[in-house]
Every structure is written in structure tokens, then in C-alpha cells.
Amino acid sequence: MQRGTREYTLWSIGLLIVVLFALVPVLWLLMLSFKTPDTVSDGSFIPNAWTLENYTGLFEGGFESPLLRPLINSIVIALVATTIAIALASFTAYAIARLDFPGKGAILGGALAIAMFPPISTVGPLFDMWRTLGLYDTYAGLIIPYLTFALPLAIYTLVAFFREIPWDLEQAAQVDGATPLQAFRKVILPLAAPGVFTAAILVFIFAWNDFVFAISLTSSDASRTVPAALAFFTGESTFTSPTGNIAAAAMLVTIPIIIFVLIFQRRIVAGLTSGAVKG
């Protein structure tokens, strides 16, 4: 069993390094968010004096507080963009997976091209278009680019999932006397749901993450999302940078994602890998 022990040790070390590599920056931010203003620059990883002030300060003033409004914006914008993107992507993915028509390759190729598209190249024109259309600094002004840039990811993921669905079951159910709607609801929907859900998680993470559009196409709390708002916190005075508050807010937007990831990790892995291998 000599070899077994050695392998076990090596494996444990590898594991430890990977876990540390992944977690240390997050832990550091968490520690920083508990530091008091006078210990924030003491260079210690673990706070010498603990405080919750950095968190409570974020919500002082209710709706006018620095974080609440951006947090609501982020949630609404990401949810709406996800819903629309998934709806549009489902139609397209269904057509590509099940129907026969010319232009299939062009659509998939085009979607791939958009997945690689540099967002900065569209920021200027979008800014100019949005200001004429009155979409500048509105929810729609962010939702539209988010859902578009998320579409390729959603389409690829959904096509991969839809191809796995045994669509014959639908016909079988109809033969057994179910109406088309019933057949769809009772048979196809449960089979498609996991794929749709997976795609939705990936799109949500994408929309939640964006920074370039968020800082370029918004200019007030009316539509500014959390990543953009982080850069705009105010400290004790005009020239003081609110390190503790930023760290605390950063943790607050990270926690939902971590919970998400913990609960849905299998689906996320399946979603990220399905598109690439079978696409």
C-alpha cells in the first residue's frame, strides 16, 4: 500500500493548493470588510478590530442608501434580461434542434461570432443611439445589450440540451389521447426544464457580472447596477476612499452568487461543458 499512501498525500496537497488558490482572495475581501477605519491599513489579513459598520453603513438612509437602489436595479435588470434571453433562445434552439431549415449554420455561426464580439466596440454607437431613443440611463438600455450578448451562450447550451430530449414521447402522448398542449406540458416541459434552468443560471451570472455597459450606459441610481455603483461610493470626505464599504458591498453581491454556485454547481458545470463539446 506504499503507493496508495503517497498518492493520497500528493492528492491532498494538490487539493489544498487548488482550494486555497480559489478561496484566499474572497476570504481576504471578507476580512477587509470587517476592519475598522483606523485598522484598514494595518496590513493584517485578519482584522485586529472587528466591526459591522461597513455593512450597516451601506443601508443607512433606506432607499437613498448607496447600495439598496443599485442592488434592486441589478436584480431586476438581470432577471428581466435572463427571462427574455431564455425565451428567445428557447425558440431558436427548438428550431435548430428539431426543425429542418436553411440558415441553421448561419445562425449558429453568427451567434458564435457575437459571443466573441468586443462589447467596447458597441458602447459608443449604443450610447449615441440610446440618447436619441431616450433609452439612456434606463433599465431597457441595459437589458437589451445584456440579453443580446447572453443569447449565444443560451442558444448553444439549449441546443445541446434539446438534442438530448426524446421528442417522440410527445407524439406518443398525443397518440395516447393527450392534447398537444397537454403533451407539451406534461411530457416535454419536465424534460426541457433542467436545460432551460441551467441556461438561465449562466445568463443571470453574465448579466450580474457586466461592468462595461453598466458604467457607459447609466449615469444615476435610476438604473446603475452594483458593479458600477461600487466605484461610486463616498468616503468620509471627498478625498477619502471608502475601502471598508466597498469591501462590504463587494461581499454582499458575492454571497448570492456563491450560494447559487453551491446549490447549482452540477448544472453550471453541465451547462458550461455541454455547449463546448457538442456544439
Binding site: D137, S219, A231, F232, T234, G235, T238
Partner: peptide, 24 residues
């Protein structure tokens, strides 16, 4: 009513300039 700008002056300017450029 208040609309608060970023504490960083350059970023505050960017916000305003974009709004004014859009004739808000």
C-alpha cells in the same frame, strides 16, 4: 431633489457629460 454623483471627480464628470451630451 438630489442625484448624487461619484466622489471621484473624473467619474462624476463622465456621468454628467454623458447626460448633458444626451441633452437630458
Amino acid at each position: 431633489g438630489f442625484e448624487l454623483l461619484p466622489s471621484d471627480a473624473s467619474q462624476a464628470r463622465e456621468q454628467l457629460v454623458r447626460r448633458l451630451g444626451a441633452e437630458d
